[in-house]
């Protein structure tokens, strides 16, 4: 089937999408946008998080057809021509990145939190990021990064 959508500000028309495919597959396999990660395909790890029409979602749980006519922002769309989003900058500075596989998802989730709660406390950060698994950092530096980004 054909899916038309806007990804990171660019209108895209994708042909040959199979009906059972997820938005995650559409992004990775059809649009070569590999920043959105596939780590569980169950909505348990948050690595595939994107914005769909401004709402944070696990792209592995969105049928590609559900994104028809929609607006998607992936991690690639957060930075602009080498200018990093403050959340991205804060993740680097705080040491919140190790292997980095979970990082795009965490960056999106932190970005979404700060849109709604500009200066969150630890408890708010923990609840907001509870859908993202990280196996490297033990999470403390990620919390540090969100605090750091909140100041900008």
């Amino acid at each position: 089937m054909r899916v038309s959508l806007t990804v990171n500000g660019v209108d895209r028309v994708v042909d040959g999408v199979e009906e059972h495919e997820s938005l995650l597959h559409l992004l990775r396999e059809h649009l070569d946008l590999f920043g959105t990660k596939n780590a569980c395909e169950q909505g348990e790890c948050g690595s595939c998080s994107v914005y769909l029409d401004g709402v944070l979602v696990c792209s592995c749980l969105v049928a590609a057809g559900q994104a028809e006519g929609g607006t998607v922002t992936t991690v690639e769309g957060l930075s602009d021509d080498g200018i990093l989003d403050p959340v991205q900058q804060a993740f680097i500075e705080a040491g919140a990145v190790q292997c980095g596989f979970c990082t795009p998802g965490f960056v999106l989730a932190a970005h979404d939190l700060l849109r709604h709660v500009p200066d969150p406390d630890d408890a708010q950060i923990r609840e907001a990021l509870s859908g993202n698994l990280c196996r490297c950092t033990g999470y403390q530096k990620i919390i540090d990064a969100v605090h750091r980004a909140a100041g900008r």
């Binding site: 059972h20 749980l61 057809g65």
Partner: peptide
């Protein structure tokens, strides 16, 4: 039937469900 997809898509992704049609209520 698929709405939020949070159950159905897991089954499809893991190859446990092979629907002949998806009815998207979103």
């Amino acid at each position: 039937v698929v709405a939020g997809g949070t159950d159905v898509m897991v089954e499809i992704n893991f190859g446990r469900l092979h629907p002949s049609a998806l009815l998207d209520l979103s």
